[in-house]
Nucleic acid binder design. Sequence first.
RNA 1: UCCCCGGUAGCUCAAUGGCAGAGCAUUCGGCUGUUAACCGAAGGGUUGUAGGUUCGAGUCCCACCCGGGGAGCCA
Length: 433
Amino acid sequence: MSEYKHAYISEIGKYEGQDVCIKGWLYNKRSSGKLHFLQVRDGSGIIQAVVFKGDVDPEVFENAGRITQETSIVVCGTVKEDKRSTIGYEIGVKDVQVIGESVEYPITPKEHGVAFLLDKRHLWLRSPRQHAILKIRHEIIKSVRDYFNNNGFLLIDAPIFTPSACEGTTNLFETEYFDEKAYLTQSGQLYMEAAAMAFGKVYCFGPTFRAEKSKTRRHLTEFWMVEPEVAYNDLNDNMDLAEDFVEYVVQQVVKNRRAELEVLERDISKLENIKKPFPRITYDEAIEMLNKNGKEAPWGDDFGGDEETVISEQFDKPVMIHRYPSEVKAFYMKQDPQNAKLALCVDMIAPEGYGEIIGGGQREDNMDVLLNKIQEHKLPEEAFEWYMDLRRYGSVPHAGFGLGIERTVSWICGLHHVRETIPFPRMMERIRP
RNA sequence: UCCCCGGUAGCUCAAUGGCAGAGCAUUCGGCUGUUAACCGAAGGGUUGUAGGUUCGAGUCCCACCCGGGGAGCCA
């Protein structure tokens, strides 16, 4: 076996006519008397290895017929072009070596329920559909990093442990930090504001945690968020950045992960259409749109999933809704100089009912106004002393936003639930495996 | 926290209040081109848990446990 060169299935075309070995696992098997068809996967792809009784030792043929699903095997043979193969090639087997047996693998090539598959998430990752989703997740994350790295942003990692709530309202996971309490971060934003005053254009990218008891297809307790922040940007600059960024990420996936989108049966034309400019409407216009479409919405209410869906259905691109009432938004949102009841904030709602993927806006840069907001929200002033320093020492207009990775993956992949968009999802009722 | 749905073989599901079943998986046998292969056979059950109604409960009633979907909540 050692004389054969190790080849990955994704690059098998380079070895046509040569003898190679594939190191992987048995995905599925079919037999036909004097033939065994072994579907072998190695992480880079799946290839059919054909064992013909007349070509190999009787012992090799016999053993090949006994290999069970997900047994790890090294398959050696000749790479042959074959039109019947979905990847264009198959292996004419000369030898098969079993590395590790797999006895009664639980995920059979038939349908299974979500609860069962989530219990077996560590094995479910081996299936082609999960490969497609997680490769697209990889592409999205790579595109996110490339976009900011290529546009003059500096990566600044935000801490995971935080001494108190960024906004004081949401449920945080509490943990012990020596002899005091600490919380898992729900956002790196306040730290990005400090970093923007130091470096101009910055972003952070990492996990965030929310302890809300939400059981919906859009919620995880642990999820990943990318948060850019730019000094001297106003709300319009922020919306320009958001749409340029989202267009780039979507188009990179369309360009580089077409095969994976096809595995998921995604309508790619809908993604190809995600090009600038994106529609921008005010909160007031959104309220009007809701009332016109039979979804009564009083001025002053925040939008839930139903409202977001009705609005997103009016467009075939992500829509940016800006200038919400200050009351429903966080304390650090800058007050609109044209109307004190409004905040200079923006949410981006993905099309096809996928909901909010971006939330952000211009930050309050006036120290007195910010102090009032902290008091109105009954937040502990001393915890925000360092944050006030950013207004005390050379305050400038600045803006930023956060994009939720899992909701973006869910939208681009066309999934029903965010739980498949992350390798090991953490939800209200599920922390294992 | 609230509302809705569900829990039967390893998995996906069926069973009018009357013998607990099928497909897949597993094991054995057959087939030279299979594509969730096919054909034949075998093994496999505390029907989520605990009560109750009934001659008789997987099925009806009550409580609880677990899961799924949604709401609230969630920049």
